[in-house]
Design a protein around this nucleic acid. Structure first.
Lengths: 160, 160
DNA sequence: CTTGATAGTGGGATTTATACCCATTAGAAT
DNA sequence: ATTCTAATGGGTATAAATCCCACTATCAAG
């Protein structure tokens, strides 16, 4: 993702019968790195978010890196069970995928139920500035209804 | 297990009629050492964990070291029976196995009941960073429900 | 309005992984 | 020794993922 590119836009897509959907060209490039790697994350029920590896790095991966270093430095010896517990959660929360041919994404097996969709169903694709989100339409409407009134105050707060 | 490789990922597998399951290729190599040794450990009811034998040894050694230090510091005098109990558990709750062809693991006899599964049943395979875990699906869901809210605090704590 | 380019979609073909099955071997018990 | 049971070792069918090509709709340019 080129630095400074904000991911925005709202799109409607339909999953095909194999749980694939094609991302809009304008944003597809923004959520995969040079190797074509895209991180898929379970956010809240009904929503998955897609990240380019480098952006992801800043948010989580650097933390994971830190943990890795600590493990190697032997600084986790009294906290194995916590490391294990966190690792477990990391494993369900995120996975790495590669977009296929025409920026087509196959929703990974364990993530389908979380998104709450069946084949041939519609989903919303929403830019969230730093990542791209895939929404179950129902959950999307629900979120909109809840969040929309906060747009103005939020905008003020973030621009002040 | 190559140093620095964290074990992550979530997979669904089915036991065959002889209590065997094939581990995903991506993680199978991470839980056996050069001699092909894998340690199976009873973790909590409904869950077994798999470790590369050499890594496990390191982990135990460092733990034993810690206990030795505490003993020498005179901090265990009131806790001999606990230490003894720990030692006992250390030996009963684990066993060494070798993965067969195609990364196939036979769940050892004494460990099946603990996992709470019957042949032809599904299990979840979950990376826990330092080990790989095999979960009874029900126990896995239960754990997730309980632990997921702690993800953020736990992450903060371990990266601080 | 026509034409051409491009993004999105559907689906056939191929590949791959794994689960299901059966055969053989090993080991224990009688 | 014999029989039974559990472990082990593959062969094969199957389903999912992946690759790839073709069709279509949309939009832009002429």
């Amino acid at each position: 993702m080129a630095n400074g590119d904000l991911i925005t836009g709202e799109f409607k897509r339909t999953l095909d019968d194999r749980f694939r959907l094609s991302l809009p060209g304008e944003v597809a490039g923004l959520v995969s790195d040079e190797q074509g790697g895209t991180i898929v994350v379970k956010e809240q029920y009904g929503c998955l978010s897609l990240w380019a590896a480098d952006q992801w790095q800043e948010r989580i991966d650097s933390g994971v890196d830190l943990i890795r270093q600590k493990i190697q430095a032997g600084r986790m010896q009294e906290r194995w069970s916590e490391v294990q517990r966190l690792g477990r959660l990391l494993s369900t929360r995120q996975t790495t995928v590669k977009l296929a041919n025409r920026s087509r994404l196959l929703i990974p097996e364990g993530f389908r139920g979380f998104l709450g969709v069946s084949p041939n169903q519609e989903v919303m694709i929403v830019g969230a500035v730093i990542c791209l989100e895939i929404w179950n339409p129902t959950a999307w409407l629900e979120t909109l209804k809840q969040d929309m009134p906060q747009f103005n105050p939020l905008f003020k707060e973030l621009t002040s």
